[in-house]
Every structure is written in structure tokens, then in C-alpha cells.
């Protein structure tokens, strides 16, 4: 028996290497069983990551990486558990992770999906990359067109008086080169993946961001009918995967190395946005979070309350 694992991340991402390790662990543990887990990276199974709530419950693919923030169209309650930018420090993240994992397990359960494990995402530093002139205050940001990647960011920046628009990942390069946008919000850590340093000259750090972990999902029915030995091997490998990824010590170091590399390629790294601006930003994010939970209604309000309690806010 072979299970396909749908990974929407490009093969080059560190998370994909971790998932390869996960598959290797599972396959090693089940070497004398008729079972293999086969990884498919980079969305090569042709499943859009926003549609996974329609695919995984059908059992059309056996196992899939899922990220709640992509699933907001079909499940607004999932999309509003973590609002990007609302949780910034590692301490805050560690405080909410157990609650978040509990919430995700429940929420996916409602969709007939069993959560067999989690993959942690490193804390990221989100910066503003601009093509023509350095921008490192909100004041300056109000004069340019800013690319963002999620609807919640549009809401937040609109509150701050910044003209933000969503440009999908694969269009950012051309959008910046042609001036459809002047600046793009992006983590320096991943900037090279879309060759951002080739179309922008200046960058400044705006806000730190801790993200919702990825979950690994399997259709309920399939999971229930699976040999317990196979289930155990998968869960054990998933626990090890979580242990390996739930580490944030190297995050700052990696971020600095990424920035240095971009600077070596000709980018000018400017001063950070002032603290006062960042406070305005965080305040706007909180408002957005409340608004999204309100809009999603139902379980979303409960989820937000539980997250806030864990944060002590």
C-alpha cells in the first residue's frame, strides 16, 4: 500500500526537507510492512492549497500538509485563529501553541479530517521591500502602493491609511518590475525564492510574525481503518517532526544571514520602522483580528477567546 503525501511547499524549503525526513522515518519503521509514504512536493499533485478542505475529506489523496490561514474561504473560523502579526514573540507563540493545536484538531475534526501531526513554522521578520526609494515609516508607506499576501493584511493596512493590495506570490516579480506596486511586504528569509532582490533596491524591517503551525491531515475514515501499527509509526514520526521544527533559537540568526546575503546582492538594508509605528501596526492587527472573528462568527469567537486567554490579554 502506498500513501501519497501532498506538500504544497516547494521542495527547496527547509520544511520540505523535514517532511522528507518524516516520510523516511515512517518508511523505516514500517520496512517489513506493505506500506510506503511517498512525498509529492511543490504542489505537484495539482491540488490548490486553498481547496484542501474539499479534497482531503474525500480521501482522494491520503495525507496532506494543510495551513489554516489558506482555508479561510471555506472555513472562516479556521482562518481567524491566528491572525498574522498578532503574535510576535517566541514566548507568546509558545504560550498559545498548545491551545492552537487543540483548536485545530477540533476544527479539522468537524471537516472529517484527523490531524496526525503538526509542523512548526519559524518566527519570521516581515519587511517592506521597495523598488525606487527607501521606505521605513508608516508616513512614507502611505504614499506608495504596497503588495501584501493576505486579506487580513489588506484590512490592517487600510486601517493605517496604506493602499495595500494582494498580489499572488508568482506575480510579485512582474508587479514590482512594472510598477503595479512600489513596495512588497515579504520576509527576508524567503525573499530570494522570488528573486525579490532583483526588482527592489531598499528594504526595512516592519514587524515580527509568529505563524500558525501547519497540520498534517488524513481523511477520518481512512485513518480509522488503518492498521494500528501503521498509525503508531506515523504518529511517532510526526511527534519527532514536531520536536525538530518547534525550535526558534536559530530564527534571528537565519534572518540576519538572509539579510546579509541580500545586501551582498546589492540591496540596501535601511533602518527598522520606528517602534511607535510598529505599535500602531499591532493595534490595527488586533482590531482586524476582532473583526475577522466577528465576521466568521460561530466557533471563531470561542477560538479567539481561548487564544487570548492563553496569551493573557
Amino acid at each position: 500500500e502506498e500513501w501519497r503525501f501532498n506538500n504544497f511547499l516547494p521542495e527547496t524549503r527547509p520544511e520540505s526537507a523535514q517532511l522528507d525526513q518524516f516520510a523516511e522515518d515512517v518508511n523505516a519503521a514500517l520496512a517489513d510492512k506493505d506500506f510506503t509514504l511517498q512525498m509529492y512536493h511543490g504542489g505537484s499533485l495539482g491540488l490548490p492549497n486553498t481547496d484542501l478542505l474539499r479534497v482531503v475529506p474525500t480521501g482522494a489523496v491520503e495525507m496532506s500538509l494543510m495551513w489554516s490561514n489558506y482555508l479561510g474561504r471555506d472555513a472562516p473560523e479556521l482562518g481567524s485563529v491566528f491572525v498574522q502579526g498578532a503574535i510576535s514573540t517566541v514566548d507568546e507563540l509558545k504560550a498559545v501553541l498548545p491551545v492552537a493545536q487543540e483548536i485545530y484538531t477540533e476544527a479539522y475534526n468537524d471537516w472529517d479530517i484527523t490531524t496526525v501531526g503538526f509542523v512548526a513554522i519559524p518566527t519570521l521578520s516581515v519587511s517592506v521591500f521597495c523598488r525606487d526609494e527607501p521606505v521605513n515609516t508608516l508616513e512614507q508607506l502611505r504614499d506608495v502602493k504596497l503588495r501584501v499576501w493576505a486579506r487580513e493584511q489588506v484590512e490592517t493596512f487600510t486601517k493605517l491609511g496604506v493602499a495595500a493590495q494582494i498580489v499572488p506570490q508568482e506575480d510579485v516579480y512582474v508587479a514590482l518590475r512594472t510598477g503595479v506596486v512600489d513596495c512588497a511586504l515579504y520576509p527576508a528569509l524567503y525573499a530570494h525564492t522570488i528573486s525579490l532582490q532583483e526588482v527592489t533596491k531598499y528594504a526595512s524591517f516592519l514587524y515580527p510574525m509568529a505563524s500558525a503551525p501547519y497540520t498534517i491531515g488524513v481523511q477520518d475514515k481512512l485513518w480509522d481503518n488503518t492498521d494500528p501499527e501503521i498509525k503508531d509509526a506515523i504518529t511517532a514520526a510526526a511527534d519527532a517532526l514536531w520536536e525538530r521544527t518547534n525550535q526558534y533559537d536559530a530564527d534571528v540568526e537565519n534572518e540576519m544571514a538572509a539579510r546579509e546575503k541580500l545586501v551582498a546582492q546589492g540591496l540596501t538594508w535601511g533602518e527598522d520602522f520606528p517602534d511607535a509605528d510598529r505599535e500602531q501596526f499591532v493595534a490595527a492587527v488586533s482590531e482586524t483580528w476582532a473583526m475577522l472573528a466577528e465576521e466568521a462568527g460561530g466557533a471563531a469567537l470561542d477560538y479567539r477567546a481561548r487564544m487570548l486567554t492563553a496569551l493573557g490579554r
Binding site: P10, E11, T12, E170, H192, I194, S195, E198
Partner: peptide, 10 residues
């Protein structure tokens, strides 16, 4: 191609 393989789009 560039985004999937981390090669320079330029």
C-alpha cells in the same frame, strides 16, 4: 519555474 526552484527570475 523560478519560484519552485529558487532560481533567479531575472
Amino acid at each position: 519555474f523560478g519560484a519552485l526552484t529558487e532560481t533567479s527570475i531575472g
